[in-house]
Design a protein around this nucleic acid. Structure first.
Length: 554
DNA sequence: GCCGTTTTCGGCCCGACTGTTTTCAGTCG
């Protein structure tokens, strides 16, 4: 859906340009529309074809027309006009940390500065000295921002799986230092967005200063950006920004809600509050001066007559209305998972690896596992686990854990697919050049699972291939699984998801929790997740009599 | 420019922090 991303980017630029021009409310309107387009699961062309553009949140008459113009001609006249009016370099200045539209506009109109290079030159020439509102500290701040942008251009957002271990190290560090009572990560991290722009930590403590001191001295922290009585902002050694706030226990729920977002979700809640004569801020929910809630998130939702909304779906895509009607989905939970349908062992695995895997599965209360016993590597060569290893896996059944044999291969070649008939589960992945699914339909008589597909547009043909079958598609972090946006598309097509479990993985591996988070973010309920179904349902087609045989033996 | 279980007009979140201020403007989330 490259089109959606391009349109979203155009509207974001329009918002910034309007900001520099000093417009009051239009920039937010365009930004809202831009965010909406980014999170669509469907191509804009299809929506426009049905004449439903205006059903997109934040898209009204004027923006719908601009989208149609963009789809028709590839450009937006209004955007082109704004670009002629405002020098392009001003957007780069605007995006420097600490600089906003007002400042960018003043540089442009008062100093004739039209880009970062000119701004640097102006500062070096001393042209900012004595200008009202620009003291030595501010000038130094701008100089530093310019230098930082030049050496490391906008680091942007970080994949969630990359931020995950860092975030947990920060939590561990803060807890170890003492003085912290409640401690949570808020922001898009808590909503399980695919990428995070920064980390928002929220704590309660009787000794905030002690907590801030401890935070400042954690090894991951490179510099302190700002520090006040309730909040500290730091930069990590890897460039990620982290905000830590310490609040009162009676405020914790309200603050957690507030800093978890999303912004659009919060705005929606606020307008509901206003309608009921209430006011929400990060300190609580109030009727006049009276606090009516705020210790927990549920208190705040409840004061608005809403059910508590899971963070993963707080995106203002209809969840507030569902919460009001007590009709929110019951999202899939870790305890719903009955087994794992895609587990790898090392190709030379022996008894110790098998025993460790099976013990792990039992301790995680899984009832079944599908283990890849052979298949085709990415380079086209075949592999199979040693026969004795497969035999040992088969022995697990006697002790209450069903083990199925999976065959993993790419979409090419019937011969390899014929082999897949001999096992319990076929796992198909695209060829390395990301060609689509096989032209032949999924095999009968064996469960199908698709892996290593990648998110975004790459997932669409695979979702179509699996439609109407018992097949499933793996959701989770990384380029090998589909993201929550593609996950939602899969659910809309009636295709089941497969959630990664911690079994067979390192304890610090964030793949499993994030996989579950993405599934929830996609709106998946227990019924939508293949490996959350009753074990008997999942393993019905597995051939118990064949366990113990190698896949090449049949 | 969008939006509406009171609205087709009149709202649009709001508080912390910083730097420059002498009471506030700008940025950020």
């Amino acid at each position: 859906m490259a089109t959606n991303a391009e349109a979203a980017e155009a509207f974001r630029d329009i918002a910034d340009l309007l900001d520099v021009l000093g417009e009051r409310f239009k920039p937010e309107a365009y930004r809202r529309a831009s965010r909406s387009l980014e999170s669509l699961t469907e191509d804009l062309r299809a929506i426009a074809g049905r004449g439903e553009l205006r059903s997109i949140p934040g898209v009204g008459e004027a923006i719908a027309e601009k989208i149609e113009e963009f789809l028709r001609t590839g450009h937006i006249e209004y955007y082109e006009r704004l670009k002629k009016e405002v020098p392009a370099g001003l957007l780069d200045i605007l995006r420097l940390p600490g600089l906003g539209p007002k400042t960018a506009r003043r540089f442009w109109l008062e100093l004739g500065v039209e880009g970062p290079a000119e701004l640097t030159a102006a500062i070096d020439a001393g042209r900012l000295n004595g200008v009202k509102g620009f003291g030595p500290k501010k000038i130094e701040q701008i100089r530093a921002a310019l230098a930082a942008a030049k050496s490391a251009p906008a680091s942007g957002r970080v994949p969630l799986e990359e931020a995950y271990p860092i975030a947990h190290r920060l939590l561990d560090g803060l807890r170890a230092a003492g003085g912290v009572e409640q401690l949570e990560i808020a922001g898009s991290f808590r909503r399980c967005r695919e990428t995070v722009g920064d980390l928002d930590l929220l704590a309660t403590s009787a000794e905030p200063e002690k907590v801030f001191d401890a935070f400042t001295h954690l090894p991951e922290i490179r510099e302190v950006r700002l520090r006040g009585g309730t909040k500290e902002t730091v930069l990590l050694t890897n460039g990620l920004q982290v905000d830590l706030r310490v609040v009162e226990p009676v405020e914790f729920g309200a603050a957690l809600l507030y800093f978890t977002g999303s912004k659009d979700h919060n705005v929606h809640l606020r307008s509901l509050a206003r309608d009921r004569g209430l006011k929400i801020n990060e300190y609580g929910i109030f009727r006049g001066e009276d606090r009516v809630g705020g210790r927990t998130e549920a208190e705040v939702y409840s004061a608005l007559a809403l059910d508590w909304v899971p963070p993963e779906i707080r995106e203002d895509r209809g969840e507030v209305d569902l919460a009001a009607r007590h009709a929110l989905p019951r999202l899939v939970e870790a305890t719903d998972l009955t087994g794992d349908l895609h587990v790898h062992l090392p190709e030379d695995a022996g008894a110790p690896e098998v025993d460790r895997l099976l013990a792990h599965a039992r301790s995680a209360h899984l009832a079944y596992l599908a283990v890849v016993v052979g298949g085709v590597r990415e380079d086209g060569s075949e592999f199979a686990l040693p026969a004795r290893t497969v035999e040992r896996l088969g022995g697990a059944g006697a002790r209450g854990l069903r083990v199925g044999r999976a065959w993993e291969h790419d979409a090419e070649g019937r011969s390899s697919r014929a082999r897949a008939h001999e096992v319990d589960l076929e796992i198909v992945r695209p060829t390395r050049d990301q060609r689509g699914p096989p032209t032949a339909p999924p095999l009968r008589g064996t469960s199908i699972a698709v892996a290593h597909v990648g998110g975004g547009e790459a997932a669409a043909p695979w979702i179509a291939w699996l439609r109407g079958t018992a097949g499933s598609i793996e959701i989770g972090p990384g380029p090998e699984r589909i993201d929550s946006v593609a996950g939602r598309a899969a659910l809309e097509a009636g295709v089941g998801l497969r959630v990664v479990t911690p079994v067979g993985r390192d304890p610090h591996d964030p793949t499993a929790p994030i996989s579950l988070g993405f599934a929830r973010r996609a709106g998946a309920e227990k019924k939508d997740v293949r490996n959350a179904a009753a074990a008997a349902t999942v393993t019905r087609s597995w051939s118990a009599g064949r366990t113990g045989q190698s896949p090449t033996a049949g």
